[in-house]
């Protein structure tokens, strides 16, 4: 119990090798979840976890997720920035798990910017 067992690790490897084998090449979409003190206090961690579930389900290899610090727009946290290749980055504000799921399915997967949730174009 003190550590994750070798069996646990083997199981993870079996279950995910297929999913991650193709994970290479340039990312087409970059999603940044802002994780400053303000973001975390406002609920960035559940947003990140919802995003993780959506990503695992979509199983797309051309999307990267990163975390970053505060942008200085603390009152609109949690903020998430979506950058699709060759389009302007969009900053979304007041995100929660449901809004994150909608932005992922609509904007990231289908390219429809969710203007209702957007704070700004950069």
């Amino acid at each position: 119990m003190a550590k994750l067992t070798i069996e646990d690790l083997k199981r993870i490897k079996e279950q995910t090798t297929k999913a991650t084998a193709l994970r290479q090449g340039e990312a087409r979409v970059k999603i940044t979840v802002h994780m400053g003190t303000c973001g975390i206090a406002a609920g960035a961690r559940p947003v990140m976890n919802a995003l993780m579930e959506e990503m695992a389900e979509a199983d797309r290899q051309d999307i990267r997720v990163v975390t970053s610090g505060c942008m200085g727009m603390c009152s609109s946290e949690p903020n998430v920035t979506v950058e699709v290749l060759d389009t302007e980055p969009i900053v979304y504000q007041h995100m929660d798990p449901n809004r994150m799921r909608q932005v992922f399915r609509r904007h990231v997967l289908l390219g429809e910017v969710q203007t209702d949730f957007a704070l700004a174009k950069i």
Partner: peptide, 9 residues
């Protein structure tokens, strides 16, 4: 860091 692996972890 892939989402599937992190979920399992």
């Amino acid at each position: 860091s892939s989402p599937a692996v992190v979920s399992h972890l």
